[in-house]
Design a binder for these strands. Structure first.
Length: 483
RNA sequence: GGUCUCUUAGUAUAACGGUUAGUACAACGGGUUUUCAUCCCGUCAACGCGGGUUCGACUCCCGCAGAGAUCACCA
């Protein structure tokens, strides 16, 4: 079996479209089949320089490696439709020979006139009702049209079930445009046949064109591949298909935002697909193993970034817990600038220590930028954070200063600076001062970080080290005293 | 307008004639020695409407309503 992903290089592929690559990939891997990447670049006007590379990047990032296509080649080369014009011409001539295609000399103004006539009479516009009686011989520069064979059509869609349509939706569609390029309608059928594609997976927007495709398969004596219509992913608001106008980001933007490919794949695969169990987190291998076409939802699914971010947090923790902090750390130094700029001079070991105590707070890797600055530079003293704290309001600045100085002296006595000893010392300090944890620990925490939140005290201190810990406590104490 | 498709909580989904309609995200409340997060516990919340069929319907059938797709020399 063979599946394919056949995007147009008209810009980045946003996440609403990525799913059309994920499902065929999963199916191909599950059934030991072949996954093809084909670039549908027949619209010269919409072609965007660099878009093909963007598509390739996206697939690589998600781990959707293709068996045939650009870069890797394959038996049906080339995999760019713009380079296959002679193939489409040959198939077009085959149809002409069978009397199933004809050159269409009608100019666009005349066609528009036909359309207007129909609209005025409130009858459906079908070009075949205006089919020229003596079409000229086909030659480059003239569009080639299919000669439809309108009749009731029935077919099976792996997602939508049994479908049917009448002759009223079948028309003489353009096969090859005046510029010599084929239309999507013709090119995909020819290519799928030449490349041996067995499962055609695409968005539901092609459902209403399917009767025309069936007629084309028939005229070309081709076996109809399995048809799989994928419902749209809907924008967060409204009922429209998710698109770039809704701010749909590209997969690569999510990479830059610190989303893991595992999470992206997991989230998108499970948007509109469920294997019947209550599992939420799937590895790629699990998706491959459990995927099935008949479990694809047949209604559109709304895109929910909140859940994606939740899932990303799950994956961050999973990687750290299962593969170790080194594995997670490797994901943070990919050149996307996830660490704050001030972290640059620090070595890997130190940053790993920071990561080890902060990772369960991350929703994205980019959160590191804002959440870890106080590990790499001394925070700006902001006494309001201390005096305005709900647990600390009742203390005078002198009392708070004393608490910090007392803490500093206590910790200074620690010989072996490690998390356990720090924990013990902090507990003793609670008893000695008679303060509640919320009181003593709050002032210490803020003095060390001046951040809205930070990891457990003993862990933070352990990573900061003795010198920095003591100096920050003293700095804050002095500031309080002099205020 | 024609044709086609879809319809379970705010969101994603489970159920394939008999359940107190399950789960997750979100929201809200609580617990885990400070904060934020993790983790744990709990609360709120759904079968679009109307007819049938059946002892019994979220599940099957028919209407209706709502939503979406498509009617290009774009894919």
């Amino acid at each position: 079996m063979k599946t394919r992903f056949a995007p147009s290089p008209t810009g980045y592929i946003h996440i609403g479209n990525v799913r059309s690559a994920i499902y065929p990939y999963l199916l191909a891997r599950q059934q030991d089949g072949t996954f093809i990447l084909r670039i549908e670049d027949t619209d010269q006007a919409r072609f965007v320089e660099g878009a093909t590379e963007l598509i390739e990047d996206t697939l690589k990032w998600l781990g959707l490696e293709w068996d045939e296509g650009p870069v890797v080649g394959g038996p049906a080369e080339p995999y760019f439709q713009s380079q296959r014009a002679n193939i489409y011409r040959a198939w077009g001539e085959k149809l002409i020979a069978k009397g199933r295609a004809y050159a269409d000399p009608t100019d666009s103004e005349t066609i528009q006139k036909y359309r207007d006539e129909c609209n005025a009479k409130k009858v459906p516009y079908l070009y075949r009702n205006f089919r020229p009686e003596n079409p000229p011989e086909w030659k480059p520069g003239i569009p080639l049209r299919f000669k439809a064979d309108p009749k009731p059509r029935k077919w099976h869609d792996e997602v939508m079930g049994d479908l049917e349509a009448g002759p009223e939706v079948q028309d003489d569609i353009i096969l090859i445009k005046a510029d010599g390029m084929p239309t999507y309608n013709f090119a995909h059928i020819v290519d799928d046949a030449e490349m041996g594609v067995t499962h055609v997976m695409r968005g539901v927007e092609y459902l209403s064109s399917t009767p025309n495709y069936l007629a084309l398969y028939e005229a070309l004596d081709l076996k109809v591949p399995k048809l799989v219509s994928l419902p749209h992913i809907l924008a967060p608001t409204g009922n429209k298909k998710l698109g770039k106008r809704d701010g749909a980001k590209s997969a690569t933007e999510y990479r830059a935002d610190g989303v893991l490919p595992e999470a992206m794949l997991n989230y998108l695969a499970c948007l509109g697909w469920n294997d019947g169990t209550e599992q939420e987190i799937y590895t790629k291998d699990e998706l491959i193993k459990n995927f099935s076409l008949d479990k694809i939802q047949n209604s559109g699914a709304r895109y929910d970034e909140t859940k994606l971010l939740w899932m990303n947090g799950q994956w961050i923790r999973r990687i750290a817990d299962e593969q170790g902090i080194d594995a997670l750390y490797a994901r943070t130094i990919t050149g996307d600038g996830f660490w704050p700029e001030s972290a640059a001079p620090y070595d890997d070991e130190y940053k790993k220590k920071v990561l080890a105590i902060i990772y369960d707070r991350l929703k994205t890797l980019a959160d590191l930028r804002d959440m870890t600055t106080y590990f790499f530079e001394n925070p700006t003293v902001d006494l309001e954070m201390i005096t305005g704290n709900k647990f600390l309001k009742k203390f005078s600045e002198d009392e708070l200063s004393d608490m910090l100085m007392l803490t500093s002296r206590k910790l200074e006595a620690i010989q072996d600076w490690n998390a356990d000893n720090l924990q013990t010392a902090l507990n003793e300090l609670l008893e000695e001062t008679g303060k509640k944890p919320a009181e003593l620990f709050s002032v210490i925490r803020i003095a060390l970080s001046f951040a809205p939140f930070s990891p457990a005290l003993h862990l933070t201190m352990n990573v900061l080290g003795k010198n920095l810990t003591l100096s920050r406590l003293q700095t804050a104490a002095t500031a309080l005293e002099n205020d």
